[in-house]
Amino acid sequence: MTEYKLVVVGAGGVGKSALTIQLIQNHFVDEYDPTIEDSYRKQVVIDGETCLLDILDTAGQEEYSAMRDQYMRTGEGFLCVFAINNTKSFEDIHHYREQIKRVKDSEDVPMVLVGNKCDLPSRTVDTKQAQDLARSYGIPFIETSAKTRQGVDDAFYTLVREIRKHKEKMSKDGKKKKKKSKTKCVIM
């Protein structure tokens, strides 16, 4: 069974824990209790493949930012979460993405942009803004509501699919490099 290491990042209060708990335990946590770091595991079937999701729910508070490099190193894919009623959390996505790329030393890291709290009427981040940002990053965008469960499975499952595509691409690139290195030079 394939294991996928997913990391949920975003500013404090955007609903990272609520999304994760909704996926794992099928219930909505409405009281806000700032996370330092929590880890969850769940076995699911995605596109006919049974897999184990190892999900790291991270601290959004700035005082825990020193811990970010460590979990970013171990993560295979990242859910970059903002709240649709919090423009600052949307603007912060850029910083999370840049930090992930720096730590992973790669421009090509599996990510999904997630606009959470889409059940709320007080939207300050337009869907088109988020779609445009995701398009500019070359990553999928999904709106979710941890409260109603809308888009929750889709967000995590899409990230797994992005990781699969990335692994497939990397193995193809690896095979191309191996083929090239088999060419021999004969000096007579």
Score class of each variant (00 low, 15 high):
114 V>T: 02
67 M>D: 02
69 D>I: 01
98 E>D: 09
104 K>L: 14
79 L>S: 00
88 K>V: 07
103 V>S: 05
118 C>R: 06
68 R>S: 15
80 C>S: 03
84 I>P: 14
77 G>D: 00
66 A>I: 15
118 C>L: 12
98 E>R: 05
106 S>W: 11
106 S>C: 14
81 V>R: 00
71 Y>C: 15
98 E>W: 00
110 P>M: 03
101 K>S: 08
86 N>I: 03
76 E>L: 08
121 P>A: 12
106 S>T: 10
104 K>G: 06
74 T>I: 14
103 V>A: 05
79 L>G: 00
73 R>L: 06
112 V>F: 04
73 R>E: 09
71 Y>K: 00
122 S>C: 11
76 E>M: 09
77 G>C: 12
114 V>G: 01
73 R>Q: 10
81 V>K: 01
84 I>M: 14
79 L>P: 02
119 D>F: 02
125 V>Y: 11
106 S>Y: 11
73 R>H: 07
117 K>Q: 13
70 Q>P: 03
122 S>G: 13
117 K>M: 15
120 L>R: 08
108 D>N: 09
97 R>S: 09
116 N>G: 11
66 A>N: 07
63 E>L: 04
86 N>P: 01
80 C>Q: 03
102 R>Y: 04
84 I>K: 11
110 P>V: 03
84 I>A: 14
113 L>I: 13
102 R>L: 06
116 N>T: 15
114 V>H: 01
70 Q>V: 01
109 V>N: 01
77 G>Y: 10
65 S>R: 03
111 M>V: 08
65 S>T: 09
72 M>H: 10
114 V>N: 00
123 R>N: 12
74 T>W: 15
72 M>T: 12
71 Y>V: 15
71 Y>G: 14
84 I>N: 15
121 P>D: 13
110 P>I: 02
84 I>C: 13
115 G>M: 09
126 D>S: 09
66 A>P: 09
111 M>I: 09
126 D>F: 08
100 I>F: 06
108 D>M: 07
79 L>R: 00
126 D>P: 06
112 V>R: 00
72 M>A: 15
84 I>E: 15
84 I>D: 15
75 G>V: 13
110 P>F: 02
68 R>M: 15
70 Q>H: 05
100 I>T: 03
69 D>E: 08
123 R>S: 13
115 G>P: 03
68 R>C: 14
110 P>L: 03
114 V>E: 00
74 T>C: 14
66 A>G: 09
122 S>T: 12
71 Y>W: 15
118 C>H: 08
94 H>R: 10
97 R>A: 13
78 F>A: 01
122 S>L: 08
66 A>H: 07
121 P>R: 10
123 R>P: 11
68 R>T: 15
80 C>P: 00
78 F>P: 00
90 F>I: 08
79 L>C: 05
125 V>I: 10
110 P>N: 04
77 G>L: 08
106 S>K: 10
104 K>M: 13
73 R>N: 09
76 E>T: 13
72 M>F: 14
90 F>S: 05
82 F>R: 00
80 C>M: 10
65 S>E: 13
102 R>C: 06
124 T>H: 11
75 G>F: 14
78 F>G: 00
117 K>E: 10
81 V>A: 07
122 S>P: 10
68 R>P: 07
73 R>A: 11
89 S>G: 08
110 P>G: 02
79 L>A: 05
75 G>R: 04
80 C>Y: 14
95 H>Y: 11
126 D>W: 07
64 Y>M: 15
108 D>Q: 06
83 A>C: 06
86 N>F: 02
98 E>G: 03
98 E>N: 05
111 M>F: 11
108 D>V: 06
66 A>S: 06
111 M>L: 07
101 K>G: 07
82 F>C: 12
120 L>K: 08
64 Y>L: 15
125 V>L: 10
67 M>A: 02
77 G>H: 02
119 D>C: 06
83 A>P: 13
114 V>M: 09
67 M>I: 09
75 G>L: 07
97 R>G: 06
109 V>Y: 08
75 G>M: 12
114 V>K: 02
104 K>V: 11
81 V>P: 05
111 M>E: 00
99 Q>L: 13
111 M>W: 09
70 Q>Y: 01
123 R>K: 11
81 V>Y: 02
84 I>R: 10
101 K>Y: 04
109 V>F: 12
63 E>Q: 04
82 F>W: 09
64 Y>T: 13
116 N>D: 08
67 M>S: 04
110 P>E: 01
72 M>W: 06
76 E>P: 01
122 S>Y: 08
86 N>E: 11
81 V>Q: 06
78 F>N: 01
109 V>K: 00
113 L>M: 08
112 V>I: 10
74 T>L: 14
66 A>R: 03
123 R>E: 13
86 N>W: 02
119 D>E: 08
80 C>L: 14
117 K>C: 14
117 K>D: 07
64 Y>A: 15
116 N>Q: 14
119 D>H: 05
114 V>Y: 00
123 R>M: 12
83 A>T: 08
117 K>A: 14
120 L>A: 12
121 P>S: 13
75 G>P: 10
102 R>A: 04
73 R>M: 08
115 G>N: 04
78 F>E: 02
99 Q>R: 05
82 F>G: 12
